[in-house]
Design a protein around this nucleic acid. Structure first.
Length: 487
DNA sequence: ATGTTC
């Protein structure tokens, strides 16, 4: 048997790109890592493998804990991790969702070609930067009272539709139609709502960005046509989450769980995996609060998209409808969701599927794929670094069997933010991107540009290649950056 | 990710 020795943890090769950490000690199931050897060499350098192994101690974990090809170390649970925990006898874990609840990506199409944009890059990037709130702290497209926040938490993008920030078609091209059932605004703390109320429609900081891109390749003509993508087309990618509201909610529930479920906590190898037992009041409360924060993040991305349409209207002097600025799709990559999956010998079970830095990747025919895409599979959006561009995939035929219907979410970091700032200077990174790649970057903070320099990320081509080879998410199209704004 | 060290 082929093995891979990762600083004391031995992985056994199941087949190409599938590695297993065998069950031992208190592990309830084996852990699996889906990666090439080149990616494993990078993954082994931080605590990712130890963390995915720790995850197998969670009660109710089903089949395997799974690390995606872009996996890296996170809070307790790796970013790029999937954990399916029994919704009746298992648990739910905020650390396995992530601090930024419903961090995700949406792609908006246009009918503009790259040539239509050339010469307007600086005007466009300046106008986007001036009109789309970004960076740490407050300031959003909408400044709302707490009652408005409650409505957004309960209704998601449906609130945006009613208030003129969305059209019906936007809802039809979003996971869960932009409204998660079971949202419980009353389970979100006042403090979280206060943090969120002036951040509705704001990018935030860190790896969040808005990027205008051009489609450079369409690998699958049939699916490309179903998605409405063609070479040279301009698209807009928006990557952000639930800002301070989600962060505060994660923190609130971690503290409550630590206090009320000490027994379960003591069984776990890492306090950061703190989980509420399925069926407990706190599990219900967290699930309701998380669903509400999910709705908040969807409205956040919707308002940014709405404002982007307005900016394009000014710069190109045409209506957004004339530019066909339609939503391709919106994916969440930090969530947990109750889903029914077939496990073991054909038994159907309800599971809390935790996808942290992992994207849902439902295949053709799945009833939860929007009608527009049901024949070809769910669109999956995988952002690369600001120098690399991104991919659009579609849910692969093997995703339900291998990953509870999931794939990767991005390139995955190679080094910490602190290390990145030692290696790069923001201004130099910007200059190089502009001079060598004609990519126009504008940011609130040079430090953020350094933290997000292309060199701090894994090779997104390799991550996507593994997803495609495994048949969990198949390559449809590739994009390359034109201009990028960030916090 | 984050009112960037509860």
């Amino acid at each position: 048997m082929t093995t891979f020795d990762a600083n004391g943890i031995t992985l056994e090769r199941v087949r190409e790109y599938v590695w297993e950490i065998p069950q031992e000690g208190d592990m309830r199931v084996p852990a699996r890592v889906l990666a090439s050897e080149a990616l494993l060499e990078e993954i082994k350098e931080d605590k990712t493998l130890e963390q995915i192994k720790n995850t197998t101690h969670l009660p109710g974990i089903t089949n395997h804990a799974i690390c995606m090809p872009d996996g890296h170390q996170g809070y307790g649970f790796p970013v790029g991790g999937v954990g399916a925990l029994d919704a009746e006898n298992g648990c739910i874990s905020p650390g396995a969702v992530g601090y930024d609840i419903n961090c995700g990506v949406r792609m908006m199409k246009t009918n503009l070609a790259y040539d239509d944009l050339r010469g307007h890059e600086e005007e466009l990037v300046d106008s986007l930067f001036a009109n789309i709130p970004s960076g740490l702290g407050g300031g959003g497209v909408v400044e709302a009272g707490v009652d408005t926040v409650d409505e957004i938490l309960a209704r998601g993008v449906d609130w945006a539709l009613e208030n003129g920030y969305a059209v019906k078609d936007d809802l039809l091209h979003c996971e869960d139609e932009g409204m998660r059932e079971g949202a419980a605004p009353e389970k979100i703390s006042q403090k979280a709502k206060d943090r969120g109320k002036n951040q509705i429609g704001s990018l935030g900081s860190g790896n969040h960005f808005l990027e205008v891109q051009r489609v450079t390749d369409v690998f699958d003509d049939e699916v490309g046509e179903a998605f409405g993508l063609e070479e040279d087309q301009i698209v807009v990618l928006i990557h952000c989450g639930s800002r301070g509201l989600g962060h505060q909610t994660c923190n609130d529930y971690l503290r409550k769980i630590e206090q009320q479920h000490q027994g379960l906590l003591n069984q776990l190898p890492d306090k950061e995996l703190a989980a509420a037992p399925a069926g407990s009041q706190l599990a219900e409360d967290y699930y309701g609060a998380m669903n509400a924060a999910i709705n908040f993040a969807w409205v956040n991305r919707q308002l940014i998209m709405h404002r982007t349409r307005t900016v394009f209207e000014r710069v190109f002097d045409r209506s957004w409808e004339a530019m066909e600025m339609d939503l391709l799709y919106d994916v969440a990559h930090n969530i947990a969701k109750k889903e029914t999956h077939t496990v073991g010998d054909g038994e159907e079970r309800e599971l809390y599927v935790h996808r942290k830095g992992a994207t849902r990747a439902f295949p053709a025919g799945h009833p939860d794929v929007p009608k527009a895409y049901r024949d070809v599979g769910q669109p999956i959006i995988i952002p690369g670094s600001m120098g690399a561009g991104s991919y659009v995939l579609r849910g692969g035929a093997n995703s339900m069997d291998l990953t509870f219907g999931s794939t990767a979410h991005g390139a995955g970091r190679l080094m910490s933010r602190t290390q990145a700032k030692n290696e790069y200077w923001g201004g130099d990174v910007q200059q190089e991107l502009e001079e060598q790649e004609q990519i126009y970057v504008k940011a609130q903070s040079g430090a953020t540009v350094a933290e997000e320099a292309p060199g701090v990320y894994k090779d997104v081509d390799e991550v996507v290649r593994v997803s495609d080879e495994l048949g969990i998410g198949d390559k449809v199209a590739r994009t390359f950056p034109v201009c990028n704004i960030k916090g």
